[in-house]
Design a protein around this nucleic acid. Structure first.
Length: 424
RNA sequence: GGUCCCUUCGUCUAUCGGUUAGGAUACCAGAUUUUCAUUCUGGGGAGAGGGGUUCGACUCCCCUAGGGACUGCCA
């Protein structure tokens, strides 16, 4: 684990925390202690000095204004930016002037990046500019730092977004200037938003933590994300172990994939079904808390029962919280307008008789209750539709609720009969 | 502008020269049903366009178009 924090401005403690939190939540663990790149600046500077000494780099005294002018000119001429100091003797340098250190890249020939995903990508060296490796304040830049750290940390595979494919060529030049062996490169496509625009850190970034807040399970995210840009036959749902066994960078798709909320929701639903009810209860309790709703310890058992009976309908834990809300509402429940309208004299009588029947009912399993409701319907000589909606309204207080038998089972005998008697 | 990358159903993908181009999701229809959902069954839906190479191209090559990345003393 390495935090690339060479940009001291952007890399705040909060920004770094987001990274660690996100990884921890996603369940992506790492070996050893994290390395903070900025703390290895001395090593990076040493490498830059070595390049300076061997002629692989040069001091650039160009001012910001001059650089800007050169940039416009270079663009107009359709060529890459070149510093005048590349070939000027350092003795020309103004006394005490600040300088940046640039890689002295070859002007001729070509550089080939052997990429595990994209294949061999060839760049003409003339199209590669002399990137800055040390800023005028003496701090190293990302491109130098990664090369030095990857080398010294023994990194064998550099797998990153394909927005770095161009950098791979220039970093290759740094490796060569330093006389180091290259790691294997694999540039994987970026993930785009549903509209096809790129989903990145600078454009309304979707930090992983946001998915947690939206009610997604980390294992569902792992599965969904793995399928974005990669496939293994017809397999859609698989474990981490299977993914690890099947995955090979070489199989990664070359084109960027779009994030599809519908499919993410479907995958998440599958994982919610498979998830442990107590774990889900804890998550739902958290969701309720963020909504300003408490879930007392005394309600936990009912919450867990409710989750077991309704979770198959939930795409997210947010929806799951909605689905169990009726079970945790406090008596007496307000009767919604619709439910009140359904409570005609006839229906009241019917629910009254049903209530008496349920009082004497021992088995409060959904199956038994379902049978009881059906039997009652037969006794009354009417379809369930005649009183089902009203019963639902009384039990749920207008909130969404599962089928009647499940709702009764979730609430339990006392609460169910209590809600009925409140309304009647 | 320049360099580089990419292009199979709406979306995610399978296919690695010979398939009725498969699956998932989404969508539509039907069934189930006490709301919503779930579940089940069925259905429509794709190789960007044009040239080659080949007995045969989604698969290989070229061109065009479209999309994207980079072009920073950011990462």
């Amino acid at each position: 684990m390495r935090v690339e924090d060479t940009d001291r401005e952007r890399s705040t403690a909060a920004a770094v925390d987001v990274i660690f939190d996100g990884m921890k939540w996603l369940g992506l663990e790492f070996d050893g202690e994290p390395v903070f790149q900025a703390q290895r600046a001395d090593r990076h500077v040493e490498a830059a000095n070595a390049m300076l000494a061997s002629g692989g780099a040069y001091r650039d005294y160009t001012t910001a204004e001059e650089l800007e002018a050169e940039r416009t000119l270079a663009r107009a001429e359709g060529r890459v930016v070149r510093s005048a100091w590349r070939d000027r003797p350092a003795s020309d340098a103004p006394e005490g002037a600040l300088f940046a250190v640039r890689l002295k890249a070859p002007l001729e020939g070509e550089t080939v990046v052997h990429d595990l995903v994209k294949g061999d990508v060839t760049f003409r060296n003339a199209d590669l500019d002399d990137l800055v490796i040390l800023r005028s304040d003496g701090t190293p830049t990302y491109n130098l730092a990664v090369v030095v750290d990857d080398h010294e940390m023994g990194v064998t595979h550099v797998i990153r977004g394909d927005d770095h494919l161009n950098n791979a060529a220039r970093q290759t030049l740094i490796y060569q200037a330093l006389g180091w062996a290259l790691p294997a490169f694999a540039h994987i496509p970026l993930i785009h938003g549903p509209d096809g625009a790129k989903l990145s850190k600078r454009h309304g970034a979707q930090a992983v933590g946001e998915f947690r807040d939206m009610g997604y399970l980390p294992e569902a995210m792992r599965n969904y994300l793995a399928r974005l840009g990669w496939g293994h036959g017809d397999d859609e749902l698989f474990t981490d172990a299977q993914a690890a066994e099947w995955f090979d960078v070489a199989d990664v798709v070359k084109a960027p994939a779009r994030l599809d909320w519908d499919k993410l929701n479907f995958v998440n639903q599958q994982y919610i079904r498979a998830a442990d009810d107590h774990r889900l209860a804890a998550l739902v309790t958290g969701v309720r808390e963020s909504r300003g709703m408490g879930t007392p310890e005394s309600q936990q058992a009912r919450l867990t029962t409710a989750i077991a009976l309704v979770k198959e309908a939930a795409h997210t834990t947010l929806q799951l919280a909605d689905l169990v809300e009726f079970a945790l509402a406090q008596r007496p429940l307000p009767l919604g307008e619709k439910a009140a309208a359904l409570l005609t004299e006839e229906t009241r009588g019917r629910l009254h008789r049903l209530s008496r029947k349920l009082e004497g009912h021992d088995d409060w399993s959904p199956e038994a209750l379902n049978a009881a409701i059906r039997a009652f319907s037969t006794e009354e000589g009417v379809g369930i539709g005649k009183f089902g909606a009203a019963l639902r309204g009384v039990l749920s207080g207008g909130l969404s609720a599962p089928d009647l038998a499940s709702a009764l089972a979730i609430l339990g005998r006392d609460e169910s009969l209590g809600r009925l008697s409140d309304a009647l």
